[in-house]
Every structure is written in C-alpha cells, then in structure tokens.
C-alpha cells in the first residue's frame, strides 16, 4: 500500500490572551491511497483544526508549531500560501459542514465550477464545461445542463452539499477532507450523501478523511477510525475493531452511551463530567478526570499510542501492556 499523506507529530497552537490553546497535540496519522479514515471526537476536540491544518488553512492565532505533513514526498506544512494554493483544491479538497462556505451566493453554479476548472487545469472553456457536467452527473444532480445556470439558493441543502462535492471532484483530487458534511442535513439526505461519498472514493480511488462526531456514520463509511480527545488521538484502528472491541475507556464510554447499548435498561450509560478546557489541561492523561479505571500514574504521565495485538493503537496505561511498568 502506498502512503498518500503522512502526518507526523503535528502540533497546532492558538496563542490567546488567556494562554495557549493546544488544539492539536502530537497527532500522527497516515492514510494510504484510496483509504477512508474517520476522525471522531466531541466538540472542541480539535477535529476541524486538524482538518484545516492539513491544507494549511488554520485561522489567525492558530499555527502549526511542530511536526510535519508529508504529501507526495514534500512537507506541505511548511509550504507558503501560494505553494499551498496549488495543492489545495487540486490534489486535496475540503468539504465543509455549511455548503455556503464553499459556494458564492451571487455566482451561478456554472461560473463557480468553471472558475475552479480553468484555474487548475489547462483546458478550453468547452472542455471545462464538459468536465463540470460530467461531475454533476456523478453526484446524481438531475438535468445538469439546466442546473449550471442556477444560483446556490435555488437548491435544497442536500443538493448544495452534492454540488460542493462535485466542485471538490473537479480536479480529481487524491484526498478529500470532509468536515461534518452532513451535520446540517436530515437522516435521509445524510444517507444519500454518505452513500455518494463512499461510492466516489471507491470508483475514483480517492482518500477520504471524514470528520464527524457520529460514530455510527463513520463506522458505516470508513475503514479506519481515529478517536480524538482534547487534541490527542486516544485510539486508532480498524473500524470493526473500534466499534466491536473498543479499548480506550473514552471510546468505550462513547459506544456504551448510545441508546442501543443501554441493553433494555431505561437509563443510558453516561460518561460523567465533560472534556477539560484546552487551556487548562490536566498534567497527565486528558481523560483521567472522567475515567473510571484510572490509576495514580494517569495523573502524572501522558500515555502515548501503543499498538496492541489486535492492531489497534491506544493511549491508555491500563490497556496497552507496553505502557505498563
């Protein structure tokens, strides 16, 4: 398997007046060509920041302070804005929760799509239009010729998201980063969009990073799952392994908290407490204050990811033998 993108020890900090927010801490992930990886975690865990940092689009006080992102043999985390622009939208595309973040409300779909094609590819206008139509057909937009001259507000939310996907497909990227692409949509439409993303990844052999907080959604779409907690990957492994045999107490808690896991009882299995503020991290394991199986060592040291026999990597002293003393 050929590695598509390799993130090594990535750190992203936001220098605020009240202190430094360490939104991403020592994250290492790699994705193979055509592989689908899910990133789950709760709000504020740093999922979006991680996604943005891959395409070097972190908003102002944020900065990649350490680590590298190797894409096609180059460390793109050090690229300048202009160098990055060639990669962004061309080799790596991003899909956001709100389709209107990508779409310009005052331009027709056709104009916007053609602009992207003409900017990244050396083709005539005729050919560009052909590419646009082809991609719109791919995302199942009915009668694409007519749609090209319509404005974003003339589409429903699900259609808009499909158009955004079509735009991100225009330049046949190697990797799509989808940041909660269906959170604003209904279940029926969510199922369609996920279906579409999955199909496209398979037919085009694209890599996919799917960011969401819904474990069920990632478990359906992706091959591997990384569980992010307070800026750190606490568990990483094959989707079936994580769903059926979670190792980290946080992952276990998340899965156990689902209503279908209540096992006939009325009360759900809740995880007590909440995620600590990124400004005020505990010295040891970030999950320790909520953890039910923690030991003294968890308060002092931060556990690192270690691989178990099953192939799952987990950052917990109680789980991985290698971490035990």
């Amino acid at each position: 398997m050929e590695t598509l993108i390799d993130i090594k020890n990535l750190r992203v900090d936001f220098a605020l007046r009240s202190g430094t927010v360490r939104a991403v801490r020592d994250v290492s992930l790699s994705i193979n060509k055509g592989e689908r990886l899910g990133i789950v975690g709760e709000s504020g865990a740093g999922k979006s920041v991680l996604g943005f940092s891959i395409i070097n689009l972190i908003s102002k006080p944020g900065k990649i302070t350490d680590g590298e992102i190797i894409f096609k043999g180059h460390d793109i985390s050090k690229y300048s804005y202009d160098q990055m622009r060639k990669i962004r939208g061309n080799r790596i595309s991003m899909i956001f929760q709100d389709p209107m973040m990508t779409l310009n409300p005052v331009l027709t779909i056709g104009t916007q799509m053609m602009e992207t094609v003409l900017a990244h590819m050396d083709v005539s206008k005729k050919e560009a239009e052909k590419i646009c139509l082809e991609k719109l057909t791919k995302v199942y937009i009915p009668s694409p010729e007519k749609r090209l001259s319509q404005y974003p507000h003339e589409f429903s939310g699900g259609m808009r998201q499909r158009i955004v996907i079509a735009i991100s497909l225009l330049t046949s990227p190697n990797l799509i980063i989808a940041d909660e692409p269906t959170t604003a949509l209904d279940v029926t439409i969510q199922a369609e969009i996920m279906d579409l993303l999955l199909e496209l990844c398979k037919t085009e052999n694209m890599g996919l990073i799917l960011i969401t907080h819904d474990l069920a959604v990632v478990s359906e779409v992706t091959q591997r799952i990384a569980v992010l907690y307070a800026g750190k990957v606490v568990e990483l492994g094959l989707s079936e392994q994580i769903i059926n045999n979670p190792q980290h107490p946080y992952t276990q808690g998340l899965i156990q908290a689902l209503p279908q896991m209540a096992g006939g009882k009325k009360r759900l299995n809740q995880i007590p407490g909440m995620m600590p503020s990124l400004l005020d991290m505990p010295k040891g394991c970030p999950f320790e204050p909520r953890c039910t199986i923690c030991i003294e060592r968890c308060k002092q040291e931060i556990p690192i990811l270690k691989e178990l026999e099953s192939g799952t990597q987990v950052a917990c002293f109680m789980r991985n033998g290698a971490n035990k003393r």
Binding site: A191, D195, L198, E220, E240
Partner: peptide
C-alpha cells in the same frame, strides 16, 4: 420506512436505505 432505513447503524453497511426520488 424510508426514514428508518436511513438511520446510520453502528458497524452497519451503508447503501441499504430506501432511496427517495424527488426533492422535499
């Protein structure tokens, strides 16, 4: 039926849902 078939299931496979034609 369409709504229920679209619920993502933990560890399930996507694609089995009832496809609704047309727009809301």
């Amino acid at each position: 039926q369409a709504l229920l078939s679209a619920i993502p299931r933990l560890g399930g496979k996507i694609g089995g849902h009832v496809r609704l034609s047309g727009d809301v």
